[in-house]
Structures are given as C-alpha cells and as structure tokens.
Amino acid sequence: MRISLGPIQYFWPAEKVYDFYEQVKTWPVDIVYLGENVCAKRREIKLDDWLRIATELTAAGKHVVLSTMVLLEADSELSRLKRICNNPSYPVEANDLSAVYLLKEVREFVAGPHINMYNSETIKLLSHLGAYRWVMPMELSAQTLQGLQESKPENIETEVFAYGHIPLSFSARCFTARKHNLPKDQCDFLCKQDDQGVALYTQENHKLFNINGIQLQSGIPCNLIGAIEQMRSLKVDVVRLSPQINGMASVVQMFRKAINKELTQTEIDVWLKKGTGNNEWCNGYWYGQPGMNWQKEA
C-alpha cells in the first residue's frame, strides 16, 4: 500500500505552502496531489508555481498528480482547468466531469473523490475513458468497497481517504464570508486567516462541521489508521492523508509504520489520544455508520 497526500484544502499563505512541501520531500509519502480544488478565488499560487513544486517533489522521488477544482462555473475557471489538463508532465486528478471531458482518451487520469462513483458500472466506464486510479467517495463503507473491488477492472487502482477533515459539501456561497457578514464577492480572502478552517458548533457545543470557504467539512477529522489491515485485505492500493496544519509529519510516520506492521494497538491508542494535539476522531463511514461516529476497531 502506498501513501498519498491529498491537495491542501485550506487557503494557506504561499510561504506556508512552500514550507510544507519542502518538508514533504523528506516524508515517507509516495504520491502528492497538488493544486487548489476548493475556491477559484484562491489564486496566490499560480500553475507555474505548482509546477515548480512538482519538479522538486519529483526530484525527491514523489509521484506528483495535479488536482483540479470540484465546482467550476465561470469561463475563466474552465480556462485554468484546460491549462492544467494540457500540462505536458504530470497526470491530473479530475474532480468534476468537465475535467474528464478534457482528459478522456487523451491521457490517463485519476478519478477523484468528488466524481460520484457508487457502482462498478461507473468505475468501468471511467476506466474505459482513461482513469488509472479511482478515489472512493467519502461516504461509502468498507463493505461496499469490498463489492466494488471484486467487480472493478483489474487495471484501475483504488485509493481511500484515510485521514483529515472530510469534505462534506460545496456551495456557490462562501461560509467564511458569511460568518464575517461579508458577501462572497468582497470576501477579503478572510479564509486565509483560518489555516485549519473554523469550527461550527451546535448550541450544545458539539463540534459538528468545519467551515472552509465554500466548503463544509466534518467537524472532527477522520482517522482510519486502525483500518489499515482491513484495507490491505481489501487490496486498497493507496491511502490518502489530507494535509492539516498540525502534526502532519507524525501522521505520515504513523501511517507508514502501520502499513509496515510496525505498530502495536497500544501505540496506536496512545497516538490517537495525544499524538497530534487532537483527540476526537471519526471513522463512521468506513463502518457503514453515520460519518461522524467513532468505532473502536475490533
């Protein structure tokens, strides 16, 4: 099993992004997805800058994939998408069928987690159109995955989102701007101040969602480190870790050790309690439950 780092979901200042990938060069990850896929207004890092990061990561032995936007509306957004799809050097992750339209039969691509793939007929179709990997939709369970693994084409790899705040929805509205009583058009890029999003609580102080611009995420991060053995038996090829601002080096190390069978259950338990500064996790989707649930592994 290989480890991938998903695209950064938050609007980190450029310097922070560069620092982050400088560290990634030395981490035991195999695949790195690069690029903005949440908000079209976040344009501080241009395609050429991403390509420069990609070159450096490739030199450090990583496989780079350029990720693309989930919600595309304006023509200018489609033009940017086209430029990414036409890049000569790196495979592309499609998160909308507009990207599949541009990539199909031209070059191999990754069918990202925001393409709705709920059955083997859909996976077969995407494989036929050129997808060499598919990322399972967040809300599917291990049991559903088992059925899909048995019926999907052999030459398409399977990737599972295993760590980080789960993207739950995308809107044309910006919830960060709304929180500051600003219209989206005059958002002042306030989400740049929130390097891990903003927690949204119920009136009973239950951390339910996490605001990240036009995206809502799970209030608490998903963590499937306890399910690594099950993923191995299901022949999952890649586990995806979604970059968070805190403790990512430790997260990558722990998943690598888990994949290498170098961790005891006690070590996992201790890490889950205090390894990353976070002690609340969810993994319900994997076990066929509400996504927010936490199921202690049997």
Binding site: V70, L71, H114, N116, Y118, P137, M138, E139, I166, L168, S169, F170, S171, A172, R173, L208, F209, L216, S218, G284, Y285, G288, Q289, P290, G291, M292
Partner: peptide
C-alpha cells in the same frame, strides 16, 4: 439547496443516509 446538488453528504455524516445513497 445551497450546496451543489449531488455533492453534499452532510446528511449521511450525521444520519448515515444521504440523497446520493
């Protein structure tokens, strides 16, 4: 729906059931 339809799983996050599934 204020969210892009077909791309919202908030309901299954809380209840286990969503429009898609």
């Amino acid at each position: 729906c204020v969210m892009v339809e077909g791309r919202c799983i908030m309901s299954s996050y809380v209840t286990g059931e969503s429009p898609n599934t």
